[in-house]
């Protein structure tokens, strides 16, 4: 999406955040992360960590992340790839005895880490997320064909061809069952008011940045 911060802006944002919050990472999270004000309500029961389908793959489980936030372990949290393991299954949310919106907080932490440029550079879900966002905000609707191709070719042309070949059977099956259309590559479907759609998103980001002290 045009208008997004570049790497330099990111580093700058991070510097400014460090200066503003010093050791108080909890306050930083409360003010800048979606639903971050819930973090302090965790009582370390661990039910979320035990409920996560991808639990074994998290370096730091959600309650640990909450505790690390309170303990001021800012860098370890924001550079972690743990939050990117969330499958949005909401198991943790419905079991949390304190009703923390854990899924949203994890997404929020990922958003914030990405925004500051601290998110891990090689993280497939992060890549997917960025690609997906760009994919659907371009026309207002997700374009599965283009999404696949972007994903396959994200590591270069050769890797993409290889990946495409390996997925050939599946691709043919999808075409055969009419669940994929090659025509989608050529623009594909989308909303009519793309301009309004994109303007609205820009505005939303601007408001949110203002509220969170992230703008300029």
């Amino acid at each position: 999406m045009p208008g997004d911060a570049g790497m330099g802006d990111m580093a700058d944002l991070n510097e400014r955040a460090l200066a503003k919050y010093r050791n108080d990472f909890l306050r930083e999270v409360e003010e800048r992360v979606d639903e971050g004000h819930w973090v302090k309500m965790c009582m370390q029961c661990g039910v979320c960590a035990g409920s996560c389908p991808f639990g074994p793959h998290w370096e730091h489980s959600p309650p640990k992340i909450f505790l690390m936030i309170r303990a001021g372990k800012r860098e370890a949290v924001l550079t972690s790839d743990s939050m990117w393991m969330c499958t949005s299954c909401y198991n943790c949310v419905v079991r949390c005895p304190r009703k923390l919106p854990i899924t949203t907080i994890m997404h929020g932490l990922a958003t914030y880490a990405q925004r500051l440029g601290l998110a891990p550079k090689v993280q497939p879900t992060r890549d997917f997320s960025i690609i997906f966002w760009e994919n659907f905000t371009r026309t207002g609707r997700a374009n599965e064909m283009r999404l696949m191709l972007r994903l396959w070719f994200k590591e270069g042309f050769a890797a993409g061809v290889k990946k495409a070949l390996s997925m050939r059977d599946l691709g043919l099956a999808m075409l055969r069952t009419k669940r994929m259309s090659p025509l989608e590559i050529l623009g594909g479907h989308g909303v009519k008011d793309v301009k309004g759609f994109q303007a609205m998103i820009r505005k939303a980001k601007e408001i949110e940045d203002r509220r969170r002290g992230l703008s300029g």
Binding site: R126, S129, I130, T137, K192, F197, M200, I201
Partner: peptide, 23 residues
């Protein structure tokens, strides 16, 4: 008429929650 994508569950690298509520 002219509905748009909901953002699905993996678009958070692109924006915070407000933009996703807006769409």
């Amino acid at each position: 008429p002219d509905w748009n994508c909901c953002g699905a569950s993996v678009s958070y690298a692109g924006s915070g929650e407000l933009a996703r509520h807006v769409i």
